[in-house]
Write a protein that binds this DNA or RNA. Sequence first.
DNA 1: TAGATTGTTAATCGATTAACAATC
DNA 2: TAGATTGTTAATCGATTAACAATC
Lengths: 208, 208
Amino acid sequence: MTQPERLSLGVAARLARYLQVLTQAKKEGKETISSQELSEWTHVNSTQIRRDLSGFGKFGKRGVGYNVDSLVSQIRKILRTAGQHNIALFGAGHLGRAIASSHIFADHGFRVVAIFDNDPAKVGTPVGNAIVRSVEELRAAVDEDDIVVGVLAVPGAAAQPLADALVAAGVKIIFNYSEALLQVPPEVTVHTSSPAVDLLYALYFYLT
Amino acid sequence: MTQPERLSLGVAARLARYLQVLTQAKKEGKETISSQELSEWTHVNSTQIRRDLSGFGKFGKRGVGYNVDSLVSQIRKILRTAGQHNIALFGAGHLGRAIASSHIFADHGFRVVAIFDNDPAKVGTPVGNAIVRSVEELRAAVDEDDIVVGVLAVPGAAAQPLADALVAAGVKIIFNYSEALLQVPPEVTVHTSSPAVDLLYALYFYLT
DNA sequence: TAGATTGTTAATCGATTAACAATC
DNA sequence: TAGATTGTTAATCGATTAACAATC
């Protein structure tokens, strides 16, 4: 139980990756998994997986592997993300609706508790488990629902004003699905989704 | 012009990241950019940016920075992804429609040339610039349209059979938006989109 | 010229991996 | 017991960064 003050960027990213695979393996009914199997799914070297995990305790059984269930809870504990985390979603278009109805966030303890859209015609209509609201209600929603993440599923031009509103309301993590480059204060983390960049990267290794 | 045989994983990933920021900066009318500015947008150390770039030529002007336009074409040349690349999209639901109508792929030279859906009711209807087709036509479409990437915007249960069909049709890059873990031959690259994993990662650094 | 920023060196740090004893 | 897989060491490799001369 050597819990260091803070994980390095690389370790934290890999642990989150293991969690994704383990969560899915659990769904598929798998009870144990070896570092070798995890390596095949994550493309992380198996020695490194064992090393990453053994830094926090002896989670595995020699000759058997790791118990999927217990490894999931151990990693959640290490990442301190075991609870529920509430999300505000912006944009009730196709992308917003896809996100609201997806299991991808829910599987990891994220819940879309509020949806906002600038279009008055959409305000009041249901999307997933929530009703679309006006952005003016953002600050109240953040306080009431303890929202820690804002997800922007809006056109590029609408992204910066919404980011500003989120910052003003005290949200510190923004997930940006638009192509806009967002300017935020240093204490706020922006993650810009970039599937095209990932594709360029994959394509390079395909072409060479 | 020291073009090494193959970029390391890290360099290729960073170059793709620079390209994303540069593409957007160009849209916003920016003509030159310094390594310091690029560093702020990408969170990559400015020394490393200069080092990454100087490995391929002297692209910058001391005291000025890099010309955005020319840097974009240089990086595209280095990544060998300067041309058009055709995509087959699977799933004409909310996510599929969002992808088909997004500029995110188009900005980087990717074009959705074919859309497939298992639902006979959707076959024949238009989505973006294409008409939804039956998956049976996949092989023909791959050959005719020179498709190099398959994007899966379908429920988890539908993903593996489609991956198999893509592999059988000779597609070597699969972009998976479902939560399923896909089994493919070693020569095929699967990129599984995992926004929730990225969020867990961001959340950890927020909580600590 | 003065100020800014590149290109590059040299030193450091952390990630990665092979190998293998321990042990289930 | 025999086979498999973990936990851990020790060595290597590549990524990262500070510093600064070159030069626009």
